[in-house]
């Protein structure tokens, strides 16, 4: 359970430092991680309060433990997960990307697939926790290496609707408000703030 409490140790935080316009990569051993407009900006945690710092740390660790490099970009002109992920896949040297929305919804994409298709989709954001993000990173890296990993097991919870459906809609609307039309994707660097190493 990752719901923060006042007695818990201070959380890791992350800020995203913009480096410059995002470019197409040339390294075949990279996965591009694309973040939505409000990720680690307007919002700091997913729908179930997983800190964005933790999401990034796990995704990157999952990628790097496969010997693959993670490169981060922020997409600013859309909050559509398929679009975000597909833009990133086309910029990825390996053609593989992970796209993620602020509320946690995540997708692994590949540049040669149709935009509305994907390699793996994790639509139920309330069910995504730190271990799942690590597995997603790991799988993305394996695709980048040309392997065919077992898909990350998907979970289902019929009671997610009563608890989370409206909040998900609200978060979606807020993320929409953070869209900056006509601004292209930027390369970002994750600067992790104070907190225990978890």
């Amino acid at each position: 359970m990752t719901t923060p409490t006042t007695t818990a140790p201070p959380e890791r935080t992350v800020t995203l430092r913009e480096i410059g316009p995002a470019r197409r990569g040339t390294r075949p051993d990279e996965v591009v991680v694309a973040l939505s407009p409000a990720f680690a900006g307007h919002f700091s945690k997913t729908i179930v309060d997983v800190p964005h710092a933790e999401v990034l740390r796990q995704l990157m660790a999952g990628i790097e433990e496969q010997g693959v490099t993670a490169r981060l970009i922020r997409v600013r002109d859309t909050a559509d997960l398929a679009a975000i992920s597909h833009i990133a896949a086309k910029m990825s040297g390996s053609g593989i990307s992970v796209g993620i929305l602020s509320r946690g919804t995540t997708m692994i994409h590949q540049k040669d697939l149709a935009r509305l298709s994907n390699l793996e989709l994790f639509p139920q954001s309330p069910l995504l926790d730190a271990p799942v993000f690590r597995m997603i990173g790991s799988n993305a890296a394996q695709y980048a290496k040309g392997e065919s990993p077992q898909p990350v097991p998907t979970r289902n919870d019929q009671m997610a609707r009563p608890r989370w459906q409206a909040k998900a809609a609200l978060l979606h609307l807020k993320e929409f408000e953070c869209i900056e039309a006509d601004r292209g994707p930027v390369e970002v660097e994750a600067v992790f703030g104070p907190g225990t190493a978890g």
């Binding site: 359970m1 409490t5 006042t6 179930v48 309330p126 069910l127 919870d157 997610a160 608890r163 989370w164």
Partner: peptide, 13 residues
């Protein structure tokens, strides 16, 4: 974590 886990207390009594 499941969505049906109870909310945690605030720490105040």
């Amino acid at each position: 974590m499941t969505s049906t886990a109870p909310r945690q207390s605030t720490g105040h009594q």
